[in-house]
Write a protein that binds this DNA or RNA. Sequence first.
DNA 1: GGATTAAAGTTTCAAATGAAACTACTTTCT
DNA 2: AGAAAGTAGTTTCATTTGAAACTTTAATCC
Lengths: 164, 164
Amino acid sequence: MDRVLNNVKAVSMNEMQRTLYLPRFLPYRLTKLSGMISRSLAAKYSALFDLTIAEWRIVALLGSNPGLTAREIAPLASLDKVSISRAVERLVKSGRLEKRTVEGDRRSAALFLTQAGQSTLAEIIPLAQDYENQLLAEFSPEEIEQLDNFLNRLDATAEDLQEG
Amino acid sequence: MDRVLNNVKAVSMNEMQRTLYLPRFLPYRLTKLSGMISRSLAAKYSALFDLTIAEWRIVALLGSNPGLTAREIAPLASLDKVSISRAVERLVKSGRLEKRTVEGDRRSAALFLTQAGQSTLAEIIPLAQDYENQLLAEFSPEEIEQLDNFLNRLDATAEDLQEG
DNA sequence: GGATTAAAGTTTCAAATGAAACTACTTTCT
DNA sequence: AGAAAGTAGTTTCATTTGAAACTTTAATCC
């Protein structure tokens, strides 16, 4: 009579569960997992580069998409405009980012990595990849693909549930 | 030449990636996913029961483990003692929790749900299970088991990486 | 064309967070 | 037993966060 992820599917229908087993509750597990991962990455980036996660995301995005504006970054990095504004301010101050007023719309600024920003990114990338590889070290390529698939589906479902 | 989760395993060895594709970076995906889920659950609990996530976890734990102390709750709920102290204070104020001084150690208090606390829990459980079921609606029992397995392994690995 | 509405980013302000200090007790050591 | 060290839980305080208000510029409406 194993419960899997608290999912009722897995328990017979006429004995509805009266308890919720927290350590198997999917939202709890995801929060705990992502918390552990984020904390250790945040500590690493902060210690080595004095970068927050928001700054790190923005640098990573601008590496492959130079010239994005704050508004465009928001959905790509899952950051709100306040966080972006603050992260950009810090990145400009630390000389890693440059703002160029957008031709034809003086409200927004296109963002570009400076040389310093690009070398920061060059240092950051292998570190991030290492970390991901360590997380997935015990996973076979097939399992990685399956995990990828699961995450995509959960993400899509969670997005739907946002509205509903 | 598909990248899977940015994992280097999936790209040939002599073309190391110079970019990091954020939307496929596992830590980012987990943070985004857990953020979406937590926000929608938090909104629901707050609106319907005036409960925070921390309070919710404590209530859920005490349902199956009456008499836990704050210190015992901490690792089970992944909460620090400050959060627990505050959540317990609110739960006591709202009449859902009762503190009883532990026989033989007057520093700690054993925590118990009151009748009100138990009926809150009884309302909360099906809601939580519904939510989890909705998230997993498109998953077959085998897939759910596999997801469970993946999460366990990632959790264990992440815990190891905390120290290292 | 001037007024109105909207959009991009920034700033402000109030609430949430969590590390460190603190209080009240308990255990250990001599 | 009494001092020293340790633990449970609370409080304080400084930082982080994000919603709402604001500023500047652009688009739309009459």
